[in-house]
Design a binder for these strands. Structure first.
Ligand code: FES
Ligand code: FES
Lengths: 142, 142
DNA sequence: ATAATTAAGGACAAAAATATCTTTAATTAT
DNA sequence: ATAATTAAAGATATTTTTGTCCTTAATTAT
């Protein structure tokens, strides 16, 4: 569905949402270990999220990444957007230049319903909600 | 959704289904022009489909690609499979090693419904049905 | 102030996806 | 038989995605 970049962005954000606070910041080392992603690559991704103020960071001892309320309340579509993948959800499944009901490909009618549901999922699920759904005891096999 | 490879494979197959017969074969030149895809790249893709007997080919004058009943009746999931992308529909949206209800990511429950519908679309729509839905008069903007 | 720690930034590298080009083989029309 | 036509096959090239490494800048603890 998504690129690695977006996958890591989502995983990292959810992890940060679950385990960080302004008092307890998380280092890139911790985060990339926890979500099983390449450290430097993940650092680049978090840089982008930080620039877009979706997460925050502070260098130095006890520094790291953390997240605040506005983003916790935001839908995960923010993260997908920030990674430039929201357009992926608008594309025609057969690669038509424009996916539209006016000029539909032969799969359009059925596919658009699915796309609509997908968008709904990503716009309705907030980051904090997802983080809460992450069971503490059960570590996911990323 | 799909890679370029798969997009071209689907477009080419649908085009061949609509415009070819055993008597009227289509050259790679015609096909790639019609579906607006890079010619040599498309040739490679059709080679794969030919090897897997999903379409057929014959070299020489009046040669080209054509399609026969078994494939016309087959679902487009065949083509997706042939391109090695059916597993894409089984993957976890967050990149968990295994997407399963037993060990679900926080998006699993909602996402699996969408995946199920997608699979259904690709397994229920036959190639000939799609070809018939292609309007003759309206040329799609690939 | 100094040293330690951590993110930011830039350059580079490897792998995968996408695309092109050239030669060969098969088939057909003459 | 010969020439023309078309797909098959293999080598190569380009672009994008994914990933690494090294230096710099910011912050904090001492
Ligand atoms: S036009 Fe193809 S999915 Fe909408
Ligand atoms: S486990 Fe993530 S989508 Fe199924």
């Amino acid at each position: 569905m998504f690129s690695k970049k977006t996958e890591y962005a989502l995983r990292a954000t959810i992890y940060i949402a679950k385990h960080s606070s302004e008092e307890k910041k998380l280092s890139i080392v911790d985060i990339s270990k926890a979500i099983n992603s390449p450290q430097s690559f993940t650092a680049k991704i978090l840089q982008v999220l930080t620039k877009k103020k979706l997460i925050h960071s502070l260098p130095g001892p006890n520094g790291g990444f953390y997240i605040t309320e506005p983003t916790l309340q935001a839908p995960i579509s923010c993260i997908i957007d920030a990674m430039g993948e929201n357009e992926a959800l608008d594309k025609c499944v057969l690669g038509l230049k424009k996916c539209s009901t006016a000029n539909p490909c032969p799969l359009h009618e059925q596919y658009k319903k699915v796309k609509f549901q997908l968008k709904e999922i990503f716009e309705e699920k907030s980051i904090s909600k997802l983080a809460k759904e992450l069971k503490n005891n059960k570590s996911l096999q990323y």
